[in-house]
Nucleic acid binder design. Structure first.
Length: 906
RNA sequence: GGACGAUUAGCUCAGUUGGUUAGAGCGUCUCGCUUACACCGAGAAGGUCGAAGGUUCGAGCCCUUCAUCGUCCACCA
């Protein structure tokens, strides 16, 4: 790919470049850490959060691909075994729902196809659609290792899921029990607590005559399942009633109601009396548990009233409610009705109202001690992983959110009734298994099924017959929560439990998990829980949480608002590098990012700027650029730019290491545009003889930019530097700062010269002096010019007093660039400085410096006193004393400088 | 009801242990097609850092209170 002639086209055209470059990268095999050159002992691993296999790329995906690719490319160039493992997610409920909708278009349901037929249909659908997302991931320039690509529903992941289930079951962490769950009548399945979303809605609060009480409710039909009423223990109105039992009749026969006291009751709300429906409210279920109440399930999984609802049996809940209210009204049992706003629980996938109900389901017990893990519970292990510093969450404030959630975690319902998903690896013997009945009272766990029960078989591989009696067996019909399999993502992708390739040993724990804060609970918490249990180590060392991408007005992007920015469209229009930069710069962990096409266009312009900088450099380098040698600086400008580059390398490297991506992008942009292009290249035009300098600068700038803008940098590298087909910028060595850092003298000198040039341009602009006129000539003849010069040069004059730099070195380029064509000479500037320096009012500067000196002395005194205080020195930690000493040294340094400056002002 | 975040130029935001004159990009206004780049260059205007107190030699940054906006969590039936 080495170039024959180096002249670049005038503008950068991403269209002709990106596909070709990506193919070359992928073909090189260098995305796979096993193929990277050199000895790579230290890994850097990121597991890609798997997008839905049936989805398409949206701007949120584009953002995480950009950030993860940035990290991967950076660490690859830093010499680490960089592994970024891609994959897709089967997203059980979401995919199931999608295919059901497709079927509905043809007027069919999943029952028409049957279970096996339906699963086949889902698999076909995924196969047909999965290549889309793969292509789109490539389009973003993602340097992930496709040879290790994983899918959450493939054979290996299925094996891991079965293995995990069996281990957890045998450790007593998984049980089957009859408890309250969130039920989606449309999905016909349970949902985890955090899969429920809440929507504000207005409903009617009905006040019912309820035996001796009046009870307010928004769900009258559930009152048919009441077994108690609760009052606050301190409520004087009802104190005497506590513990009594009475009967009510809502038209389906007498119901026995006990009066219980519970702190959870709000005396102010409604009548202060709550009807308790243990089978249909999580809150009531908890109260019932504390009071060992009986439960009565009046709503079934089909969303209709059960036989226990008497004459209402078979009616959908809404109809039952209307009918019941009507009848109670006619009996005069309704006291009043009022409108109120209420938070309705909804299925997060299909927006159907959730029906809480009791059901026989599989649960993960988060509070049971695990023997093989030092007697810790899942909850304790998950908390310690973060508390003990094994996992760091960025931004840090989310650690608190995580703790709060984890501390309040309830047992996790993992069984789902949807068809598509990992089948629960449990079999029941048709002859010797006896299903335990529903417990009569809430809180009674004797009806729960755990390991050891006869005829209940849990196995990684399907058994043929019942080991207890040799009888015929059948598998549990339920599937597992999709997060049960996603929770194993960091290790199921690396070969757990056998580790045939040694990947697990080499790459786990992973270094970073980068994802959105919106799935902290769904996914991150589950991964921590599953991994600490399975491997007894953390899944990742750092969690980087990015924010949401919003539109330029700060609104969420949505189809209905028509404000969606399609990353593929804009990548096509402006180039992938531009899209990536717009998603990197201005982005910080945990904060939402505003995105607009203008912003992307700006970075497109920048990519072109970089292209033209390269074009200019290549036109001005004699022979073939090398760029690997550190050049010997010949002039002030050379020393300055090398020092600046070195400083940029240091800060950019430190920032990326610290998971800071916006700032290094800005640092690089400022350096490239404002220092390299606007100053150094202009100077180079005049000073000439810069082949080595320019080659070195270009190569380093390309390397530094590569993780941010991989395509344009690689393209330039290929055209200018690449030695052979396997020589990619992608695997070039990351720049190291040179020995000679920018010294103060060079820096001050350059600032002085820059200010002088700016001042000269300024005067020209203000006075409208035409090109070609020399300021120094005008200076002696024209009072106005003299006055302006004096004014403009005040700063420069005071700066010049503290600088040793001679202007004569740099006179040629100053003359050339201080305005359009030729405007002035360094002699003129020198003259102006001299005159202005003598004319400016030094007393004001002096006064200010004196005040500063006074302050500094006071501060130094305070520091001295602090450090002389024996008590402080004895009690403060060493680090604090060190800091205080450093501060003292700094202020003393400042005092010396100020004293020097004041001397020269006299 | 709890917790957290934000508030800095017209707009979008930097500002990491408190330290010289608070920065950038966009937008606005002048000027300029100078052979790398008009997807460009030169220059300018624009800020009592949400409010009020406090700590300090010194506060955009630390403390207290308040205001507005936003997010998450929670058992008002």
């Amino acid at each position: 790919m080495a170039a024959e002639h180096r002249e670049l086209p005038k503008a950068y055209d991403p269209k002709g470049v990106e596909g070709r470059i990506y193919e070359a990268w992928e073909g090189s095999g260098l995305f796979n850490p096993d193929n990277l050159p050199g000895e790579r002992t230290e890994p850097f691993t990121i597991m890609m959060p798997p997008p839905n296999a049936t989805g398409t790329l949206h701007i949120g995906h584009a953002m995480f691909l950009t950030l993860e690719d940035l990290m991967t490319r950076f660490h690859r160039m830093r010499g680490r075994a960089a592994l970024w493992l891609p994959g897709t997610d089967h997203a059980a409920i979401a995919t199931n729902t999608k295919v059901e909708k497709l079927l509905a278009k043809d007027g069919k349901t999943k029952y028409d196809l049957g279970r096996d037929g339906f699963i086949e249909r889902v698999k076909e659908y995924i196969e047909g659609s999965r290549d889309t997302i793969r292509k789109q991931i490539r389009k973003m320039g993602s340097s992930c290792d496709w040879s290790r690509e994983a899918f959450t529903f493939d054979e290996q992941r299925n094996r891991v899921v079965r293995e995990m289930f069996v281990r957890m079951f045998n450790d007593g962490l998984i049980y089957r029990g009859y408890r309250i769950v969130n039920w989606c009548p449309r999905c016909e399945s349970t949902l985890a607590d955090d899969e429920v979303e809440y929507k504000e809605e207005s409903t009617t609060l009905v006040y019912l005559k309820y035996g001796p009480f009046t009870v307010a409710t928004t769900r009258p039909e559930t009152k048919l399942g009441d077994t108690a009423v609760a009052v606050h223990p301190d409520d004087v109105r009802y104190k005497d009633m506590i513990g009594q039992t009475f009967e009510v009749d809502f038209g389906i026969g007498l119901q026995q109601i006990r009066v219980i006291a519970d702190e959870g009751v709000d005396m102010e709300f409604g009548t202060g009396v709550v009807g308790i429906t243990p089978a249909h409210s999580a809150v009531d279920f908890a109260m019932a548990e504390r009071n060992q109440l009986p439960m009565k399930k009046v709503i079934g999984e089909d969303g209709k009233m059960t036989a226990l609802a008497g004459k209402y049996a078979g009616l959908p809940v809404n109809e039952a409610r209307a009918k019941l209210v009507k009848e109670l009204k006619s009996k005069g049992l309704i006291e009043k009705e009022e409108e109120m706003s209420h938070k309705l629980s909804m299925c997060y996938r299909c927006n159907t109202a959730i029906e809480p109900l009791t059901s026989r389901q599989w649960f993960v017990d988060v509070n049971r001690p695990v023997e093989s893990r030092r007697g810790k519970t899942l909850k304790e292990m998950s908390l310690e992983a973060v508390r003990g510093g094994g996992i760091r969450i960025l931004p840090e404030r989310f650690e608190k959110v995580y703790f709060n959630w984890m501390e309040n975690l309830h047992d996790w319902c993992v069984s789902r009734q949807i068809w598509f998903g990992h089948r629960i690896p449990v079999w029941y013997c048709k002859s010797c298994y006896v299903e335990k009945g529903a417990p009569e009272r809430v809180g009674d766990t004797s009806g729960y099924e755990r390991a050891g029960q006869s005829g209940l078989i849990t196995a990684v591989d399907a058994p043929e017959t019942c080991p207890d009696c040799g009888g015929e067996i059948e598998q549990d019909v339920d599937t597992l929560d999709t997060w049960f399999s996603s929770g194993t993502w960091t290790f199921s992708t690396l070969g757990w439990p056998d580790d045939p390739k040694g990947d697990l040993k080499k790459f786990h724990p992973t270094q970073c998990l980068e994802t959105g804060y919106d799935i902290l609970f769904f996914w991150i918490a589950r991964m921590i829980l599953m991994t600490t249990y399975a491997l007894d180590e953390v899944p990742f060392e750092t969690v980087y949480l990015h924010g949401l991408v919003r539109d330029e007005e700060g609104r969420k992007m949505s189809k209905s608002l028509e404000n969606i920015i399609d990353p593929l469209d804009v990548a096509e229009k402006y180039g992938t590098d531009a899209v990536r930069l717009s998603l990197t710069i201005g982005n910080s962990p945990g904060n939402d990012l505003r995105m607009s096409e203008d912003k992307i266009a700006y970075y497109r312009n920048f990519a072109n700027k970089l292209w033209n900088i390269s074009r200019f450099i290549l036109l001005n380098v004699e022979g073939r650029p090398d760029g690997t040698k550190v050049p010997e600086p010949k002039t002030l400008a050379d020393r300055w730019i090398l020092g600046r580059l070195s400083a940029v390398i240091t800060s950019v490297t430190a920032d990326i290491e610290a998971y800071n991506f916006s700032r290094p992008g800005e640092t690089l942009r400022d350096f490239t545009w404002n220092e390299l292009a606007d100053w150094y290249l202009e100077i180079a035009k005049v000073e000439g003889d810069k082949s080595e300098m320019l080659s070195y600068l270009l190569l380093n700038v390309l390397k530094l930019w590569h993780p941010f803008m991989p395509f344009v940098t690689e393209e330039i590298y290929q055209l200018a530097f690449s030695g052979d087909e396997r020589d990619f910028l992608m695997v070039a060595e990351w720049p190291r700062p040179s020995e000679s850092n920018l010294d103060g003298e060079t820096n001050n000198g350059m600032i002085l010269l820059q200010e002088a040039v700016v001042a000269a341009r300024n005067i020209r602009s203000e006075l409208g002096i035409e090109a070609g006129r020399k300021l120094d000539e005008l200076f002696v003849r024209d009072d106005e010019v003299a006055r302006r010069l004096t004014e403009q040069f005040k700063n420069i004059a005071s700066l010049a007093r503290f600088s040793q730099v001679s202007l004569s070195d740099s006179s040629s380029w100053m003359t050339a660039i201080s305005g359009a064509r030729t405007t002035t000479t360094s002699g003129g500037i020198q003259l102006a400085i001299t005159i202005a320096g003598d004319n400016i009012d030094q007393s004001a500067i002096k006064e200010k410096k004196e005040k500063e000196l006074e302050d500094a002395r006071k501060y130094a005194d305070t520091q001295h006193r602090k450090l002389d205080n024996a008590d402080f020195v004895a009690r403060a930690p060493a680090a604090v004393i060190e800091t205080e000493r450093r501060k003292l040294a700094e202020v003393e340094d400042r005092i010396t400088k100020l004293e020097d400056q004041l001397k020269s002002l006299r």
